[in-house]
Amino acid sequence: MERDDRDALLARLKVFEGQPAAVAGRGRDPVNLPMIRHWCEAMGDTDPAYTGPDAVAPPTMLQVWTMAGLSGHADRSGPYDALLGLLDAAGCTSVVATDSEQEYTRPLRPGDEVTFDTVIESVSERKATKLGTGYFVTTRTDVRVGPDLAGTHRFRILKYAPADRSRRATARRPRPVVNRDNAGFWEGVRHHRLLVQRCTGCATPRHPWLPGCNACGCPDWDTVEAGGEGTVYSYVVMHHPPFPAFAPAADRESGAAGPYAVGLIELPEGVRMISNVIGVPYDKVRIGLPVRLEFQAYDEELTLPVFRAREDLA
């Protein structure tokens, strides 16, 4: 795309900033205990604040109460869909969610009826990324109960034209998103240390890293270094889509992208984390398999913690 065409497209995209993506939307269901229970079970969150007659919903469920479900939103003729259509026409036919931010101003309680308004907050200039070239689109959703603001949810996607994979000499592993909340974790990984956050108020460990304790709400924390031992708590085997960057090392060299195992690893420090299980064929991974922490370099910039099956106990 020529520079004049890019400038013209950006001008058309910028027109959408400030336009509504949803007006006076309503949650499909009131805030309710069954959904809160399912969420807490999935997250392993046992905070008593989320149970009983005085229960509140976990703040991070904010977006849940606004979601349209599998049927989606009926109206596909608004500014947001027009914006996405314009990007599709410009060749940006792929999309990936990149990050989200939430602010909480009022607890949500069972029985609350949620309403929300969403606005297209910003459209970035044209950006070149490892996935391809495109535009970051940010929406802001204000969630209310009656006239009271309960929280704000910002959601950002990249709408992009996929890069020409045939020009890539090698498949590079995607970079992790490093932000102010998890920078300490990635700094530890860079020095081959697996650091677990620990609340200084109630000593509850947590992973992934968060700005505050989900057990007692304390904002203060320190870290403990994981000893390196663990067990497979659960796992999946990835067959599709094939992506060479995630294939085992031997397959990456050949360009093949065979199945690989992703494990939920339970550490004796009291947390679980997701990573690759290596050192054993994917079809030999099992729940309870003992593993040991390793740090694997994928290129000159990226090192990640992975877990190797212990040969003495595999």
Rank of each mutant, 00 (worst) to 15 (best):
A203S: 15
T223N: 02
P162T: 14
R167N: 12
E41S: 08
I278D: 11
S124P: 03
T200L: 13
V271M: 09
L84P: 00
T231N: 02
T138D: 05
L13E: 00
G188Y: 00
L264R: 07
G146P: 04
A245R: 03
I278H: 03
A42F: 11
L70Y: 00
K130A: 14
L293H: 07
I157S: 14
F307K: 00
A257E: 04
L194M: 11
R292M: 02
S94I: 01
R190Y: 00
P59S: 11
T60C: 10
T118A: 06
D81C: 05
H191F: 09
P205N: 07
V262K: 06
D75I: 07
M35T: 14
G134N: 07
M35K: 03
R106W: 01
E229Y: 01
S122Y: 08
F185P: 03
L195Q: 05
C216W: 11
T51C: 07
G288Q: 06
R292C: 02
N276H: 13
T133V: 14
T231D: 06
T51H: 13
V291I: 10
M43W: 10
T139P: 03
R165G: 07
M43F: 08
P79Y: 14
W186T: 07
E2T: 14
W209F: 15
L267N: 05
L195P: 00
D88F: 07
E41K: 11
G72L: 08
V196I: 15
C218H: 12
D181L: 03
V15L: 09
R190M: 04
Y235L: 10
L13T: 02
P205G: 05
V237W: 09
L149D: 04
R286M: 02
R37Y: 09
I120E: 06
D112E: 02
R252N: 02
V306N: 03
D299I: 09
S124Q: 04
Q296F: 08
